[in-house]
């Protein structure tokens, strides 16, 4: 088996509080794939993304890049491997610099001659669909869509291998979200990128990712290929999340699973399975014992004591999908 590009092992990130934003998460990102991370507020998906690019230090566990801990690397070398496009792209651009300066900044930081590399940056602008006129504007003078493209261009100037996009379509109208997703896909092909896409929009995730990880209150609850996870979610939370997305076509509507209760505060996560307070299929064991990740199909794992599984002995008495309607 080839070495994964990124290997996350037992990663926990604890903020003062204590707030266990990410709690014992392990997963791999293979070179060239697109991994989606979905979850609601407090799930820790953004913290996970920021920890991979070393904006947060792991409290325990580690993030390994090609088999080596990210913190053992030369800082500048590591920055050329992994980049992040922030959720709020407009405010991720330093407000007093022009777009040209913003695009030169990564080259300057890495001591690369601007004259030598500028042609490449101009080519990138073309590929991203940014007109040259934008170069002499300030961030507050460009549209939201352009700010997003500038942020993507900046991240790609250093030719990273991993690009993390935090909520790439949040706040975009549907009429232009397709453009952005097409762009990301095109860039992946032309630059051989590996993607980690963090989003709460399940339609987007289903459409553009190869594999999906579902997080809830800092825990990874399910991971698997996009096809298998969307068609046969094993964790009741994943199933509810998928069913919660509204569908236009009345004939294609899935039975809704309306979860009861609120998302608990990550400052006081419930014991046992974190999801047990809202789960329709909760049993005594769920309230005390933290379920470990377990394989349920090829490349499909979930952390649930009683997952929805079509044909396993243990799963036979589990409630069928959609029974909580």
């Amino acid at each position: 088996m080839p070495l994964p590009l990124v290997a996350i092992r037992n990663l926990s990130v604890v903020f003062p509080g204590p707030l266990r934003a990410v709690d014992d998460v392990s997963l791999d990102i293979a070179a060239g794939e697109t991994l989606g991370v979905v979850g609601e507020s407090g799930s820790g998906k953004s913290t996970l993304a920021k920890t991979i690019v070393d904006l947060h230090r792991p409290t325990s566990g580690q993030v390994m890049f090609e088999g080596q801990s990210s913190q053992a690397f030369d800082r500048l070398w590591f920055r050329r491997q992994a980049q992040l496009v922030f959720q709020d792209a407009a405010s991720s651009l330093s407000p007093r610099l022009t777009v040209r300066q913003l695009l030169e900044e990564p080259l300057r930081i890495h001591g690369l001659a601007i004259g030598e590399h500028w042609a490449g940056v101009r080519g990138l602008l073309g590929a991203i669909g940014l007109p040259a006129q934008v170069l002499d504007k300030y961030p507050h003078q460009v549209s939201g869509g352009q700010a997003r493209r500038i942020a993507i261009a900046r991240a790609l100037v250093l030719k990273p291998r991993l690009l993390i996009a935090d909520e790439p379509t949040a706040g975009l109208d549907v009429s232009i979200q397709g453009d952005l997703l097409n762009l990301l896909r095109g860039l992946q092909q032309s630059f051989g990128l590996t993607y980690l896409i963090v989003s709460h929009n399940l339609n987007v995730i289903r459409r553009v990712t190869d594999r999906v990880a579902v997080m809830y209150l800092g825990k990874l609850v399910e991971i698997g290929s996009t096809k298998s996870l969307f068609s046969r979610p094993a964790h009741p939370y994943a199933a509810a999340l998928i069913a919660a997305g509204p569908v236009i076509d009345p004939l294609r509507r899935r039975p809704r699973i309306v979860l009861r209760g609120e998302i608990p505060s990550p400052l006081r996560p419930p014991p046992g399975c974190r999801f047990h307070t809202r789960c329709h299929f909760v049993r005594d064991r769920c309230r005390v014992e933290v379920p470990p990740m377990a394989r349920i199909a090829e490349g499909h794992e979930t952390a649930c004591h009683f997952p929805f599984v079509a044909s396993s002995e243990e799963g036979s008495d589990a409630a069928p999908l959609g029974a909580g309607v």
């Binding site: 920021k50 690019v53 904006l55 800082r75 500048l76 920055r79 050329r80 980049q83 992040l84 922030f86 959720q87 709020d88 405010s91 991720s92 651009l93 330093s94 407000p95 007093r96 900044e105 990564p106 930081i109 890495h110 942020a151 900046r154 991240a155 250093l158």
Partner: peptide
């Protein structure tokens, strides 16, 4: 904790660079 300072860190900017080029002008 402004995103634009975090973005500079992700690009690899040193603390001195962030302070002089991005914090002080703002």
């Amino acid at each position: 904790h402004a995103p634009f300072l975090e973005a500079e860190r992700v690009l690899g900017a040193s603390t001195a660079r962030i302070v002089f080029r991005h914090v002080i002008p703002n």
